[in-house]
Write a protein that binds this DNA or RNA. Structure first.
Ligand SMILES: [Mn+2]
Ligand SMILES: [Mn+2]
Ligand SMILES: [Mn+2]
Ligand SMILES: [Mn+2]
Lengths: 226, 226
DNA sequence: CTCCGTTTTTAGCGTGGTCTAAAAAAGGTA
DNA sequence: TACCTTTTTTAGACCACGCTAAAAACGGAG
């Protein structure tokens, strides 16, 4: 049977697989902020339920049914995040904690109604794609870290690599939000920082670390016109 | 520390106190569909936390802090019910199960934002009053069970005594919704049933049991005009 | 006051999940 | 290959919360 903890583990496995290809116990320890023994223990449970495939000392793999649970949990998580930002006016650094609870509430029917109410959003407030009801990943975008842009690029912020509270609050303090359009004015080789120009003409320097965590789209010419 | 189970118990104690004045273990067994030993056990926990006052074999009493937790849980429950009905188009018999989970999510800030988003509703989809952020009960209404109405009354459904799924689905099947205005045409003494007239002219007979569970307001003359 | 049915508590167990500490396995380096 | 560090598993404990069965207390009727 599904529990909050089991859904959290399955979701974490899905994300780690997505990020790094292979899922170790250690990676789960870090992602879930737990202890190795707890991970081993839960993997036994998930394996018995037929949601993961796991041999001792080997990498973890989601089964089809495990992946399906993970995807619908992730779908609920991201839809509730959209709800909290769009309808309740929370900022993107405040929503994760509540979505972590809300993702465990509701069935498919409720989720689909929420999805419809929100206008079938494709991305969550951090720019992460929202799986469809059929468990499809809709991420066909071509994003690059802002650290890889060059002088002269006009770029739009479409996502973040690290959606931890600390980094998001850092972006908040710089007044950087999803959808923001910047122009790269200058790039310093020695520390990887870049100077960017805001829509209002203001100029700021962004550190290499900040730029690496910002996922942007390079704007084409016709898009500049709209 | 607050847990889902503890919040459910506190809420149940509040409601039983409201309904019948005094809270016995037995009443909690019935309300929470659990066993006497579980109740005794939890009362020890709640008492240790300072949320209830309980001496063996005596009635249970909420402390100020316990009542505060119970009220905010009830507030969240009823606000989420409004959300599910008003925004996601669920019917009133479908919302309780999800509200039972949602009521455990969010802090005061989130609750107040939800409240504002919903337009500060005073009543939930079953006609029950929603406690304010300050923990006030806003129920100054003068409702009576429809069983006590007399021939000639024009009445409006404002609440239900029993908001269990079964009864609500029964009302659904009769096409009876909150806010519905009916006129009492006939009352049969021998079985307590009454014949009522719908706004569209249709006439139906309602059983004594059904009428006893419908809380209505007798409409004054000037209200008939609007 | 004594009985007896009801309510409540106690005792003991089960389940799901966490943790620490220690043992075992893995895997890279000398 | 042998060693050493890291990773994973095992062993054993703990906590929250449910349950059953039996004991104890309560409270009304005779
Ligand atoms: Mn979660
Ligand atoms: Mn997100
Ligand atoms: Mn609940
Ligand atoms: Mn309700």
């Amino acid at each position: 049977m599904q529990t909050i903890s089991r859904e959290d583990y399955l979701k974490a496995i899905l994300k780690i697989e997505e990020e790094s290809g292979s899922v170790s116990n250690q990676a789960l320890v870090e992602k879930l902020n737990t202890r190795p023994a707890s991970v081993t223990n839960m993997l036994r449970t998930l394996s018995d339920a037929g949601w993961v495939q796991h041999e001792a000392y080997k990498a973890v793999h989601l089964t089809a049914s495990g992946k399906s649970i993970a995807l619908s949990t992730l779908r609920r998580h991201r839809l509730w995040e959209v709800f909290l930002v769009e309808k309740l006016d929370f900022s993107w650094d405040e929503v994760h904690q509540w979505a972590e609870d809300l993702e465990h509430v509701g069935d498919e029917e409720l989720t689909n109604r929420l999805d419809a109410f929100l206008g079938h959003p494709a991305f969550d407030p951090h720019g992460d794609p929202i799986p469809t009801a059929q468990g499809q990943w809709s991420d066909g975008r071509n994003l690059l870290p802002a650290s890889l842009t060059v002088v002269g690029d006009r770029i739009q912020l479409k996502g973040v690599v690290d959606s931890g509270e600390e980094f998001l609050q850092h972006l908040n303090s710089l007044d950087i939000k999803l959808g923001l359009i910047l122009e790269v004015l200058q790039a310093l080789d020695f520390d990887g920082s870049k100077t960017v120009k805001w829509p209002d003409g203001r100029e700021t320097s962004l550190s290499k670390q900040t730029l690496q965590n910002m996922l942007v789209e390079r704007l084409e010419f016709q898009e500049r016109e709209q």
